[in-house]
Write a protein that binds this DNA or RNA. Structure first.
Lengths: 357, 357
DNA sequence: TTGTATGCGTTATCAA
DNA sequence: TTGATAACGCATACAA
């Protein structure tokens, strides 16, 4: 397959067509009017030489644009993909970016390796940071140095960076209060990870003090507004299995007998965690919501519940992604980016009820 | 932030450091030994000028490599993200590519728009096609013209393209036969989409004849080996909701009464479809597997089943992704790519049983 | 409407 | 170990 011979360039095409390179270039970019006869000559020459269009590398060096937007995801890609919230956000993002971008470059922001962030040498026009952790700062620094527009979705960034945020604390407080008003006094929470290490363990003052993930801390603070001394467990990630394991620990001894001091309500920081908690409860013979109230957070279509509707706070994930994309577009057009704040909405389901006596 | 002044280039750094540009370049690429004193001068100059390293666009024009691998996903990205099999494959892919690639460029292969495929002007070193449809041919053509290495995962490609394939027909036949051997005679199938239009509708001879998605057809052919005249419905996608709706149509009239001629077994072409079918059955008062057998395909961790284990064919999705990545690496090293074939494995669960009388 | 000339920022080759 | 030079392939300002 033509390995010997070098690829045709636009100069070759121009020569073959008997026009100048600029004319040939213009035929492909379509930005200037070209006489029909000329265009045909060029197209024919291109076809004859097997020229498929400008080399994107050269074009992007020249124009300064690659048409690529980098998305830096916290942690491994595998985690990111498993989380339906991220998935939906990406969806909104690609949507908003469709008009200006050829594609989305997925970059991992792995806290484990010590190389400079991959974003340092990726040919992107702009960057979106999603739920990044400790390394977010480092990434931001690199991005700023490179002078790239950047938008942060739910991460810690300075005030000078456009961000898409959620009322995590308020929303958590709302649903926790709802649980309290139902009459619950012994509530426990299952939180997302406190730090990039992602360890499943009981919540302690020390661990909390060392925490770095602000989503987790904000939601926890909201929970504490209603249950100042509620106990809790941090999950290793937003997974059904994690919710299951955490809830088992909260509800039962290791031998499977129910704990006497078990909570009457579990406030989970994600719907997936809540689904796992419900599954654990059912396995232990506790019915939801009669014997145990379980509420979630996110409002994704929770797949594991049969016909049971989860009581939760619904967050506008699609809109968050779209808003980030829109800001990127704005900034690429030279306007300043703006932060956008979203609020969650309480969604009554069937998994919360007054405690049994 | 310094909007007025142009970015520093390596030439600026070199001048500032009092060395030649080639020396400065070498300091950053690290490919050749440089005297320690020289290196320090260059690094200091870079720091002083705020130079963060070579411009990836220029570097990639010069070297001919961008460090980016393009992944073309069939249909919309949103569909792709929602499908756990794709997700897991991507995971394996990124894994295998980690050593040579900065990131993965997600490209959509939307059958709706008539522009040339986005891959035509993306600065990628290689391409992986995942589950693409009609447009796959077109994409392949573009990719070949550009002379890029390409690997296809479960799509239709010529024999000269390295592919990662699955024994779809055999695997489907295996599980369908299992159902038949349990004693079922009236089985229906819920298939994946037949064509890019993705319409939910009963399976008819005409629709089948016009179908273009080979995975669907292969799995259907396997089903037919055991149930030559089994009926079926095509789903609009691999979604729980689709399985739910399809199963409802198979099992009940529109008013919710059970159909007299309903199947005693449903063979779904994906686990998500199977989960939906189970949910529909339960809502209609049919117990699984006592009143209805439901089997799936994929062997993903099905989240919607409580403690019920789905009877299914498990496919090695992670390995498929990884294999594709490994072939890309090989080809980028100049070796020829090879096709890799994987087999599914029957996984007995608790959703299949002999029919009731 | 077309052509000329220039530079985008880098790296590879070669010679010193 | 360092430096001079020449591409890489293209798009644009400007002139014709």
């Amino acid at each position: 397959m033509g390995t010997g011979t070098r690829r045709a360039t636009i100069a070759d095409v121009a020569r073959e067509a008997g026009v100048s390179t600029s004319t040939a270039s213009v035929v492909f970019s379509g930005k200037v009017n070209v006489a029909d006869a000329t265009r045909k000559k060029v197209v024919a020459a291109a076809a004859a030489l097997g020229y498929t269009g400008p080399d994107p590398r050269a074009a992007s060096l020249r124009t300064g644009r690659s048409g690529i937007v980098g998305v830096v995801l916290g942690g491994d890609l595998r985690h990111a993909f498993l989380d339906p919230v991220t998935t939906v956000m990406m969806d909104g993002l690609t949507d908003a970016l469709a008009s200006i971008s050829t594609g989305i470059l997925l970059l991992r922001d792995d806290p484990r390796d010590d190389e400079p962030p991959a974003i340092a040498d990726a040919p992107v026009d702009a960057v979106v940071l999603i739920g990044c952790s400790t390394r977010a700062r480092e990434v931001l620094e690199v991005v700023r140095q490179r002078g790239l527009p950047v938008v942060v979705i739910e991460g810690d960034a300075g005030d000078d960076v456009p961000q898409v945020t959620l009322d995590n604390r308020e929303a958590s407080a709302t649903i926790a209060r709802h649980v309290r008003e139902l009459g619950h006094r012994r509530a426990a929470t299952i939180t997302l990870a406190l730090d990039p290490v992602r360890e499943r363990a009981p919540l302690t003052a020390e661990r909390e003090a060392a925490a770095t993930v602000s989503i987790t801390l904000d939601r926890l603070a909201g929970f504490r507004e209603a249950f100042p001394d509620g106990t809790g467990i941090t999950a290793a990630g937003s997974l059904v299995d994690e919710g299951y394991l955490a809830a088992r620990t909260l509800l039962a001894e290791t031998d499977g007998t129910l704990r006497a001091d078990r909570p009457t309500a579990i406030v989970a920081q994600s719907d997936l965690l809540a689904v796992g908690a419900i599954r654990a409860a059912e396995e232990l013979g506790l019915r939801v919501p009669d014997d145990l109230t379980v509420v979630g957070f996110d409002g994704i279509a929770a797949d594991g519940l049969g016909s049971l509707e989860l009581t939760t706070m619904a967050q506008p994930a699609l809109q968050k992604g779209r808003a980030a994309g829109e800001q990127v577009v704005r900034m690429l057009e030279g306007e300043p980016g703006e932060s956008v704040h979203f609020a969650c909405e309480f969604r009554a389901g069937e998994t919360a009820a007054p405690p049994a006596h």
